[in-house]
Structure formats: C-alpha cells, structure tokens
Design a protein around this nucleic acid. Structure first.
Length: 479
RNA sequence: CGGGGUGUAGCGCAGAUGGAAGCGCGCCGCGUUUGGGACGCGGAGGUCGGCGGUUCAAGUCCGCCCACCCCGACCA
C-alpha cells in the first residue's frame, strides 16, 4: 500500500499536485494530450460548486440556458480584439459527415459571439432589458502547456452573459457577479481571494474592463479563480445588438460576461491540501463524514455495524453527507489514510471500545494524526458533527488567509521586489503604464495580477519609473 | 517552436562488457487478519514506444521517426 503515498509538498509541489489529483480519483489523463477525465469524486465536488453558484445566480435574477458548441468562424472575426486574443487557441471543425464545410466551425472557446448574435435577434425594446442568462457547459482552448484542472484543452465552467440598457447597470452587474464569486470562494470554499481589476494587457480579449478574484496557492503562485467582465458596447456593436429606448431612439446595449471553471477545483486542492492529501471544505465536500467500523470478530462486527448504521441514518436525516466504509478487504489503518488522501473533513471511528462506552471517536481532517482525535458521546452526535464541520470550514479559511498575509510583501524598491518573489506576492504602487508592467514581467516573470478596487488615499511612487502612481497592484508568479 | 529529460507488466523501476525479460507495489483466488497504510500460499499479466540497420544473436549497438514529462513563449 506504500505506493499510495504522494510526494510531499515541499519536495515538489507540482508532483504533489499531479499525483494527488490522480490518487484521490478526482481526475485522470485522457488519451488526447492536454485533456482530462473528471472522475465521479471530482465531478461530485464540481456539482457542489455548481449548486453553490447556481443558487446565487438564481437569487440575483439569472436564468440558465444552453447555446451550441459550434460557432461559425465568421462570428469570431467580428470583434477585433476578441479574435486577436482567441485565434491562436481555436479548435476548428472543417469536415462534417465526410463533406468539407462551406464555413469552418469553431469549437467555442467562450460564447460571447454566438450569444451576441442571438441577443441581437431577441432584444428590440428597452422592455426586453436586462437579459440575464447563464450557461453551464464546456469550452475548448488549444493551450500549449496544460495541467490537470488548471489548464486543459477542454474545461467545464459556467459563463454568464447579460445585456443592459445603460453603462451604469452593466458595471453594477459586473461588480455584483464579482462579489458573488468572492462570497462563494470565501464562504463555501474557504479560499481567501483578492478582488481586483485587470490591467489593459491582462484583461479579457474584447472587454472594456475585466475584474478578477485572485487566490494564493500553497506554493505562493497566484491563480485567477474567477472573472467578471464589463464588455462595454464592443460586442453590441460587433453583433448589432440594439434596442429602442423610451424616446424611440435606437441604442446599443451594454453587455457583461463572467465565468468560473473547474479550475477552481485546482484552487481548492492547492489552497488547503497537505502532505496527507486533500482537505476539502465541508460545504463542498462530496462526503462530509466517513464512518469507519472497527471489529475483531463476527460478534463485534454485528454490534459495531448496528451503531454505524444508526449514526449514518441520524446524520443523513440532518442533510449531512455521510458514507459508511464497510470494505472488508482493507484494514482500518488503510481506510484512515485513504480518506485523509481524499480530504473528507471528519472521520468517525466506531470500534468495540466506543460501542461499549456509548462513545464515538472523531478525527478531524485538518488536525491529522492520532493526537487530533476526540471522543464524543453518541447522544451528542448531530450537534458535535455540525460543530466540527463548521469549525473545519472556518479554520481552513483562517489558515489560508494567514498564509497569504504572511506571504505578501510591500517592497520598498525593485531590488527588494526581485529578491523576494519566490516567497511573496508583491503589493506595489504602479503608475498604470504598460512599459513598467512589461519590464516587471520580462525581468521577473511576475505578472500583474490585479489592481485593488479600494486603495489608500493619496497614492505613491511607481516602483519602476518613480513617477506619481495611483494604482495599488499585486504582482506575482501565476499559473 | 527553442532548451533539457524519459519511453521495459496497471504504477514505480532494475536489466556493465550484446547471449532464456526481472523486482517492488497493485490486480485475481483461498485462508488467516482488522484501534494508523496486515500476512501466508497459489496465480494472471510483456509487440522492451515505432520503423529500419549492424550481428549467428539486439531491451542492450547505429540511424530515422513518434509520444510523453519538465523549463520558456501562449493562457481561465
């Protein structure tokens, strides 16, 4: 069983990550380069993420729909910046049913164009606005360097697309969805994120303004965990999405788009995981509580199983996701390690000693090893489980936040910036100009993650050119 | 597309000097086990990445090709 061990995070963070994804059975490599299979355990996690987001989307008036995967090539070419950004990574279908196609079809890398086309048909009056639609689906981008969950040729996500009568409404929507992503990350995934705005060079191809939530991974690298774009009237003009306002004047709409993908699973893994394996936030964990029965003979097995069944029923009736590991072919010790690898937040061990004393042994995933166990009276089961799950949820967030804060530096000059990039995100004053940003990227490989939405009064001096700067920006190495 | 590396059983690897394809883990069967990765016995599993060459003989030597991984350029 020794082969189930994964490398330590400090040895090689990349190996740790890859092997963890495979061994915890979240995903596996597909036969095509850069593609992955999301396995049932990984998909269950994604389904919980979907529910947490979908609930929030619906509560803010959005409806789900499904648009086709194939987009006429000509659509992509209608928005100048958009095609420039996506052309290099398009998968294109040129043959269908054995026949060369009249017009090549792009496999959607994102759906602004085809949705823009449909919106131009559907939107005629100010009474049709706003249009608030989301779709859950998959997209394809022909990436050069791939990594499970973080960057694969095909990935699953949701993309919201909205159209509004005014610029103010569109901006409001863009920020509303950014806030929803941040709230989901913090509340449900226990992943602390920085909300910010992308610079000109980092923004979405075709957007007027892009916003992001950025998360720090366990190796200090930054991960863009979700994005929300104010598209201005760029797509409205490219696809002729116009409406008549109250004054009977023709106006272009203002559109937004926002997305969060299966990449977020990577964020959860790399934010919380440790050398034993995954640690899943209780609110999203496919299994919140695993029961491990322990016995030495048939008589004990009967008594222990009875308690395990009862505990399982009680927890299920409280909407707690519980699993009884009744495998006969592996030992309890194996199961302990196995469920730690899979990141289940709480394990309850039920053996003859517990049964005799009417107790249960609790082992929290975030405090691994023998020392972290607690013995709990069976009568307090439901209350204690709820408390532990809530406590794990909170402590994961606090730990991750403390980690990020301990690895954030405000360097006094570029030298200090360069010397500490391995261990810190850099929070600096930046003049907002491209050349200074580019110089940092070229010399350090750190990219501009985002500009803070709320910044200190007054401003400071740009760390590169020394000129007056009003943008407070994070720079870091990123995935 | 540049720079580096690796291809031998499901996974991880060993196979100096060419001479009968191996080990550990996993897998299957039976039995004993079970409070932190159990053990015994018996099994199954191979186009040694591909093609060509040298040789009596190639996993091993030579040439070409392919795939994958890591580091850059591209990126949610």
């Amino acid at each position: 069983m020794a082969s189930n061990k994964i490398p330590s995070r400090s040895e090689s963070f990349a190996d740790w990550y890859n092997q963890l994804v495979i061994k915890a059975e979240l995903a596996d490599y597909a036969p095509v380069r850069g593609c992955m299979v999301v396995r049932p355990y990984g998909w269950a996690l994604w389904e919980n993420i979907q529910q947490a987001l979908d609930r929030r989307f619906k509560a803010t008036g959005h409806k789900n729909a499904a648009f086709p995967m194939f987009i006429p090539m000509s659509f992509m070419e209608k928005e100048k910046e958009h095609v420039k950004g996506f052309a290099p990574e398009l998968a294109v279908v040129t043959v269908g049913g054995g026949e060369e196609l009249e017009e090549p079809l792009v496999v959607r890398p994102t759906s602004e164009t085809i949705i823009g086309h449909m919106y131009s048909k559907w939107i005629k009056s100010y009474r049709d606005l706003p249009v608030l639609i989301n779709q859950w689906g998959n997209v394809v981008r022909w990436e050069l360097r791939t990594k499970l969950f973080l960057r694969t040729l095909e990935f699953y996500w949701q993309e919201g697309h909205t159209a509004h009568a005014t610029e103010e409404e569109a901006e409001e929507e863009t920020i509303r969805m950014l806030d929803i992503y941040a709230d989901f990350a913090i509340t449900d995934a226990s992943v602390p994120v920085i909300k910010g705005r992308k610079s000109e060079s980092e923004k979405f191809a075709g957007a007027m303004r892009s916003y992001t939530i950025e998360a720090m991974m366990g190796d200090i690298r930054a991960l863009q965990a979700g994005t929300s774009h104010n598209l201005g009237q760029n797509f409205a003009k490219a696809f002729d999405i116009r409406y008549l306002d109250k004054q009977n004047e023709l106006q272009y709409v203002w559109t937004t788009s926002w997305g969060l993908s299966t990449r977020f699973i990577g964020a959860i893994i790399m934010t919380h995981g440790d050398d034993q394996g995954l640690i899943l936030p209780p609110k999203l964990a496919p299994i919140q509580v695993v029961l491990v029965p322990i016995y030495h003979n048939d008589e004990e097995k009967t008594k222990v199983s009875e308690v395990a069944e009862r505990v399982s029923r009680e927890l299920s009736s409280e909407e707690i996701r519980v699993h009884v590991d009744d495998r006969e072919e592996v030992t309890p010790g194996f199961k302990f390690n196995d469920w730690e690898l899979r990141g289940v937040p709480l394990r309850i061990e039920i053996g003859p000693k517990d049964v005799n004393k009417k107790m249960l042994t609790f082992a929290r995933r975030d405090t691994p090893g023998k020392g972290g166990k607690a013995v709990v009276p069976q009568t307090q089961l439901v209350g204690q489980v709820a408390e532990v799950l809530q406590s794990v949820q909170a402590s994961l967030f606090e730990k991750a936040l403390a980690f990020r804060e301990a690895h954030t530096l405000e360097p006094k000059d570029f030298t200090e910036f360069k010397e500490n990039l391995e261990d810190y995100w850099m929070l600096i004053w930046w003049c907002g100009r491209g050349p200074c940003e580019a110089k940092i990227k070229t010399e350090t490989r750190a990219t501009n993650r985002c500009m803070l939405l709320e910044k200190p009064e007054g401003g400071g001096k740009c760390i590169i050119c020394g000129k007056q700067a009003k943008e407070r920006a994070f720079f870091a190495r990123a995935y």
